[in-house]
Amino acid sequence: MMLELPSKRQIKMIRALAQLKNYRKRHGLFLVEGLRATEEALNSDYLVEFLVVSDDFLERHREKIKEYENIKVYEVPRKVYDTLSDTEAPQGIMAVVRMKNHELTSIYEDNFLIVALDGIKDPGNIGTIIRTADAAGASGILAGKGCVDIYNPKVVRSTMGSIFHLPVIEGVDLPVVLHELSQKRAKIVVTHLGAEKSYFDADLTGPVVLVFGSEAEGVSPEILKISTEVVKIPMPGKAESLNVAVAGGIVLFEAVRQRNHPFPL
């Protein structure tokens, strides 16, 4: 363990990474906060540049920190750490991690299950969908150009470490990529409140892309034209719609069920 005090420049950099999308993109770095998420980063194939810990966290977890051999660790007073964190009750540990550039071809495996996100701007929803897709064994995530930055600290926190488990590709021109995938015989399955067909009746086996749009606007008309199937989640209750992260989980695990129990001919 290499324990040091951060410079003023490094403190400024951490604050910028927490607050500024353009700064994150320009430097190819993002923040991960919390012990569990930090350990997920350290155990992944992402490059962890350094850790920042509060003095009280270090006092409680000194033996744990000693395990992080060859990782530079900066110690700061709790009051300073709290100014760097955007959480209400920070644990006292964060990591600065280098981004990875995933290629689209990395998720085109046999019988892929890809999740495509169109115009979803809520960080918690994006993060939860990434976590759910990870749990469902999805091949990867395509985040369209209108989506919130996936390296936003709130998104990263909501993934609970799943951002390190599967490729997440952002800034995707979804109509173009979905058209290409349809030419590869992938089924483009779009959820839409106005659909007539239930997702129970859709064949979600084989190469599939599940497309989810924002609650406010739904999936764009351009993507609807490309879709193989447009489906809805039956809602016998009085609610008009579902949170997109909840809807995504429902349809994803129907795909899991069908892939474990083949769709009847």
Rank of each mutant, 00 (worst) to 15 (best):
K66Y: 14
R62V: 02
I129N: 10
L42H: 12
Y108S: 00
E69A: 04
E103C: 07
F57M: 00
I120C: 06
G92N: 05
L113G: 07
Y108M: 08
Y108K: 02
N43D: 14
A116C: 04
L117N: 11
M94P: 07
E39Y: 07
V96G: 12
F112P: 09
R60M: 05
F57E: 00
Y108I: 08
M94D: 05
L117W: 01
P77N: 03
E49Y: 08
L84A: 06
K72F: 13
A89C: 05
E103N: 11
L84K: 04
K21R: 15
Y74M: 00
D56R: 09
R62K: 14
G119V: 12
L117F: 09
T105Q: 14
Y23D: 02
R62M: 03
N70C: 06
S44L: 08
F30P: 06
A135N: 04
G119H: 06
I93F: 06
G34K: 15
I129C: 12
R24N: 08
Q91F: 03
F112N: 03
S139G: 01
Q19K: 12
A89Y: 14
L31F: 11
T38Q: 02
E33Y: 13
D82L: 05
E103L: 08
N22A: 06
E103G: 04
R131P: 14
L29D: 09
D110V: 03
A41R: 09
K64R: 08
L31E: 03
N125E: 08
K79Y: 15
K79F: 13
K121A: 13
E63Y: 11
A37V: 09
V53D: 00
S54P: 15
P90M: 02
G140T: 09
A41Q: 09
D110S: 10
G140I: 08
M99G: 02
L20I: 07
R98M: 06
L29N: 12
D82Q: 04
G127Q: 08
E69D: 11
P77E: 01
E40P: 14
E67M: 13
I107Q: 01
N70K: 11
F30V: 07
S106L: 03
E88H: 06
A37G: 10
H61W: 12
K79H: 13
L29H: 12
G28P: 15
E40L: 07
G140D: 01
T83R: 03
R131F: 13
V32H: 05
L113I: 05
Q19L: 10
I130K: 10
V52F: 07
E88G: 08
I126C: 14
E109G: 15
G28C: 14
